[in-house]
Design a protein around this nucleic acid. Sequence first.
DNA 1: ATGGGGGCCTGCCGGC
DNA 2: TGCCGGCAGGCCCCCA
Length: 283
Amino acid sequence: MPELPEVETVRTGLEPVMQNKVILKAEVNRPDLRWPFPPNMAQRLTGACVVRLRRRAKYILVDLDTDETLLIHLGMSGRMLISDMQVGDFQLKNFVKEKHDHVVLYMANNIRITFNDARRFGMMDLVPTPRVDKHKLLASLGLEPLGNSFNETYLQLALVGKKSSIKNVLLDQRIIAGLGNIYVCEVLHHAHISPKRRSGSLSKKRVNTIVPIVREVLSNAILAGGSSLKDYRQVDGELGYFQHSFGVYGRESLPCYTDNCDGIIKRIQQSGRSTFYCPTCQT
DNA sequence: ATGGGGGCCTGCCGGC
DNA sequence: TGCCGGCAGGCCCCCA
């Protein structure tokens, strides 16, 4: 699931239970996710105090007082679970481990944070904090869509002369970092632009409309995530899997929501991935 | 240089 | 009930 808004919601949810807290113990239950964990990850996390949590694109960055940063990506199915524990739980090992609980952090505030990822497309790495931006996976990321540098001129420049479809370009993390399959579909639906359009064929005027729509769609989703984020004690503590209602994604064969449009949502494949759009109002 | 497809994994759902 | 194909919100990597 996790695109930028979901990752931001997870970061927000983790902040109060991790920031300024010491990791008493880290448990690593397998050698890898998508890639091997860094050497001695458990030992390097143990005893570290979390200084702050940041987000870059779909990555969560946990800065530690050891001058290392824990880099986390949730992949397709990664989740963070927050749960209470009794003092000493981590020594007694008496809590129930669910399938795919790959990494467990026992925090000094008697809270346990569990990284669960069925498909294991996620990743974790430990890198020196000053060099985290140079990490192979972060180095080539494009602009944050909610940052100040992302503007009409930037997008025009990024699209000019491009032969690939506007959908694939908006999905390209080297250009805009954080949009995924769902929100690209949503953005293009709002902008009334066909996902099949060659990027270079869009007028400047139409390109310009995309920028505020990206901002709006993402910030609304973050707001929705934030408001669905209850106190972890009241729910199951699962972060990263709240359900939104989407305007076009997943609505194949249903009527288009656009005002005065009587179109029916269609689903096609682009670069092997599903695209949902309205052939009537998206041109 | 860039675009497209394969592959990584497991789970779930619908059809037969 | 069981099996099978298709699908899933990510992204690296290889090939043309």
